[in-house]
């Protein structure tokens, strides 16, 4: 554990809590991609199956359980509790175009051809593209509420901090997880355009982020 990793995990947690509370308090999931949230629930489910097979630390176990619970609770709010507020017509990203290549790649490029290992690899690849339906939705509607942009900011910051964590771990422990690092770099790149808009529009102005 290092400071980048801990801060990264905290940003990840903050992002998930921001989204959950936004939907819970406003009783609305307008502007939120349910598809991205289902993908994240799938990411956590396929990655954290090792909860049953290996114990790493109390921190690790608690965080995994919290992420899983919050991910499914968010999906529940969007698709069941506040379903009437869900903008399904704007959430039109075709997730099969992500799932099929990601599933295929996880069979081809993995550390070991074992069920849990392939599912872990699948989760890493899927996480790198899971936010795309949300970014697509914002591009399509041309705007995002500021609270939604704060959610995306913390999610992007989490990714950036994990990159710093890997640089740190490489130099201090010789640790290098190629699959995670390559996917992590790809994932962080997706946030660059958003970061630019966030700093130039949301933080300088107020209210919604509107696209040019």
């Amino acid at each position: 554990m290092n400071i980048f990793r801990l801060l990264g995990d905290m940003c990840h947690l903050v992002a998930i809590i921001i989204l959950f509370l936004k939907i819970w308090r406003s009783k609305s999931c307008a502007g939120i991609s349910g598809k991205s949230q289902v993908l994240f629930a799938l990411v956590f489910t396929t990655r954290y199956l090792d909860l049953f097979t290996s114990f790493i630390s109390v921190y690790n176990t608690v965080m995994k359980v919290v992420f899983l619970v919050l991910a499914y609770a968010t999906v529940y709010l969007i698709y069941l509790r506040f379903r009437s507020t869900y903008n399904s017509e704007s959430d039109s990203f075709r997730v099969e175009f992500l799932l099929v290549p990601v599933a295929g790649l996880s069979f081809l490029e993995n550390y070991a051809f074992a069920p849990l290992e392939i599912l872990w690899t699948f989760s890493i690849y899927l996480e790198s593209v899971a936010i795309l339906p949300q970014l697509f939705m914002i591009t399509k509607t041309g705007e995002a509420e500021s609270i939604t942009t704060h959610y995306l900011f913390f999610l992007g910051l989490y990714r950036a901090l994990y990159l710093a964590n890997w640089v740190w771990r490489y130099h201090t422990e010789g640790f290098f997880d190629q699959i995670a690092v390559v996917s992590g770099v790809v994932q962080t790149i997706f946030y660059c355009d958003f970061f630019y808009l966030y700093f130039t529009k949301v933080l300088r102005g107020s209210g919604k982020m509107t696209l040019p």
């Binding site: 090792d50 690790n60 070991a112 640790f175 997880d177």
Partner: peptide
């Protein structure tokens, strides 16, 4: 490369 086995990151 670290490979298969324990994945200690979240």
């Amino acid at each position: 490369a670290e490979g298969a086995g324990l994945h200690d990151e979240l």
